[in-house]
């Protein structure tokens, strides 16, 4: 029998039923209104585009990690994988030109994703440790590849490579277009196709999914392929934006990405979350940073604010589900 004996249960539930489903959207709305009231520059179109643009790299990576997390796994390797793809594409650009460099970089990055997918999906190894190991290993791979040197594109005028990071179509920055396009495609994939349904089933209960004839290993494998594809895209945008890069450009991003996905309401237990909510999670992180900057606060204040918001968001989610605010653990 479900434990519903808490006295604060019913009140919290009725408010919570709505918030539980749309809490993150509501929070986002309140947040935007709050900032808009305190600073008029906040709702300036240029400002908003600027925020979205600076969130695209994190955002693109978060889209892929959403699949991994919904299927019940983790991916802590996306940060160092992004560094890898950035360094590789810049180096290859100098050697064989952008036309070949880009597909080759995608192939290399996605084969790393395939390796992780194989280890976690087919060999059933714990994803936290596998991707932790891969974080370190890929970082080493990047350093070996680059020899520890920064990569730069020597003749920046002679190439169209900058279009992914700096170009505009109809006045809208290309990275934003890529982010939106990818988000729409992946949202459709997750919400509307049989594959998406299987991702939820595997994350919700992988044994029951197997007993229903769903190839668990292949589904998990595919989520890591998607994740690595997103990472490669993010690496491309990063490389094209700065036309040069350090070996550590993605360091630490794995946890920020995860924070955005969790903020969007995906459960680390798997089976819950959507692409749309992840996008909201990414934007919240972006706008917090922006809003705090406009208030004249330093960038690092956002770390503290993010900390508080993540815990409140997940806490609210849990509190609604269990029907009481505080944990029943004695």
């Amino acid at each position: 029998m479900a434990d519903v004996s808490a006295s604060d249960g019913t009140a919290l539930r009725s408010v919570g039923a709505f918030l539980g489903r749309h809490g993150i959207v509501v929070a986002f709305g309140l947040f935007m209104i709050g900032f808009a009231l305190t600073n008029e520059r906040f709702i300036d179109m240029d400002n908003i585009l600027g925020v979205i643009r600076s969130s695209t790299i994190l955002g693109v990576m978060a889209l892929g990690v959403t699949f991994v997390v919904i299927s019940g796994n983790l991916d802590l390797s996306v940060g160092s994988m992004m560094s890898f793809s950035t360094i590789v594409v810049l180096d290859l650009h100098e050697r064989i030109g952008p036309e070949l460099a880009i597909p080759l970089m995608f192939a290399m990055t996605m084969s790393l994703g395939a390796l992780i997918g194989f280890l976690v999906g087919y060999l059933r190894l714990n994803s936290l440790i596998v991707t932790l190991g891969m974080l370190s290993a890929i970082h080493g791979l990047t350093l070996t590849y680059s020899g520890g040197q920064n990569m730069d594109i020597a003749d920046q005028q002679a190439t169209w490579f900058s279009v992914f990071g700096q170009g505009r179509v109809l006045g809208i920055p290309v990275p934003i277009l890529m982010f939106v396009l990818l988000a729409v495609v992946l949202a459709t994939l997750l919400a509307k196709t049989p594959f998406g349904r299987k991702v939820y089933a595997v994350g919700g209960n992988d044994v029951a999914a197997t007993f229903s004839g769903i190839p668990r290993a292949r589904v998990v494998f595919m989520t890591y392929i998607i994740s690595s594809f997103c990472v490669a895209t993010a690496g491309l945008i990063q490389a094209s934006r700065s036309m040069g890069s350090q070996n550590t450009v993605g360091q630490g991003m794995e946890l920020e990405v995860l924070a955005a996905v969790i903020l969007g309401g995906a459960s680390l237990m798997g089976g819950a979350g959507t692409v749309f909510k992840t996008v909201i999670g990414v934007l919240i992180l972006g706008f917090i940073q922006n809003g705090l900057l406009l208030l004249g606060l330093e960038f690092y204040v956002q770390y503290v604010v993010t900390w508080i918001i993540i815990i409140l968001a997940v806490w609210l989610d849990i509190a609604v589900k269990r029907g009481r605010l505080w944990s029943p653990i004695a």
Binding site: A259, Y300, Y303, V304, T306, W307, I308, I310, I311
Partner: peptide
């Protein structure tokens, strides 16, 4: 994970 960000902010 949150604290890692928050404490670093501090």
């Amino acid at each position: 994970l949150g604290a890692m960000l928050g404490f670093r902010g501090l």
